[in-house]
Design a binder for these strands. Structure first.
Lengths: 150, 150
DNA sequence: TATTGTTATACTCTATAACTATA
DNA sequence: TATAGTTATAGAGTATAACAATA
């Protein structure tokens, strides 16, 4: 009863269960992820490859990239192999610790990242048409959800 | 300029770009999807298998299931093969059109779906701790986004 | 002819475990 | 010994194309 002032009718907003919210979040993300995959596909990138490239806006080790992609380090070997074979990424040994491979975007890689970004954000399904108030409100809610984590 | 009354300072809510909103939506969904995958894993289901089972709350053809999973029909053969091998799903020929395979949950399959649902919604990361006002507001926003599609 | 579902093929992603080279 | 990265392996998901059965 946080807002008794609203009265019994609860305005026009129904209460939402975890089930409903998860359902809607998945439904919203599905077309957005499809759009991400399709725009990556136009540049012949798999979704994981596009995510990896995006994460290399700063140089990172294989392990750091694995952590960011939330996958086992052994997977990153293959993902980076494929990106390196296309000249989008370079592996360099880090002199302070010769075990570590420093991953760097090449100029071509940086160009691909930028082209993907432009394709992706030229028009984002469900998002680009939102009005300013809703964008603000959604941003605040998501921010609050994210900052509620330990 | 929809709300001139707010004045120049725009309350405390910053405007949000598509980039920021996509970033935050992905960040919110990541732990939720991980939780979905982990709870499915406790029942030895892959995420796709868990989604397929959940979609079979009503009988569907292979093609309908493929449409719901947003993947090619040929993939569904393998997914359903694995579920059928474990006795969670049955294929039945539909008499009116003998080309169509009707997919039905078995009793065991239904039990697995219910157990996964309980594991999943016992506690949803980022979501279960939201207060009523935020749940309502988020539900409304997502609803509005979804209904804005053609 | 068109549609449903399957098979064949090939590639990507995924995790586990064993290995190497460094530290 | 511990860590960074690789390799080997196996399984699951993905798309394309060709095919059988049915409409």
């Amino acid at each position: 009863m946080r807002h008794a002032a609203l009265g019994r009718k609860e305005e026009t907003a129904p209460q939402r269960s975890d089930e409903e919210l998860v359902e809607m979040l998945f439904a919203v993300l599905t077309p957005i992820k499809r759009h991400f995959a399709e725009t990556a596909g136009e540049l012949e990138l798999s979704p994981q490859q596009a995510l990896a490239l995006r994460d290399l806006d700063h140089p990172r080790s294989m392990r750091e990239l694995a952590d960011r992609l939330v996958c086992d380090a052994s997977n990153v070997t293959g993902i980076v192999d494929r990106l390196e074979a296309r000249g989008l990424v370079e592996r360099q040994v880090r002199p302070e610790d010769r075990r570590v491979k420093q991953l760097l975007l090449t100029d071509v890689g940086r160009d691909v990242v930028e082209r993907h970004h432009r394709l992706m954000f030229a028009d984002v399904p469900l998002l680009s048409d939102m009005d300013d108030d809703d964008r603000r409100a959604l941003g605040n809610l998501l921010q609050r959800m994210l900052s509620s984590r330990g």
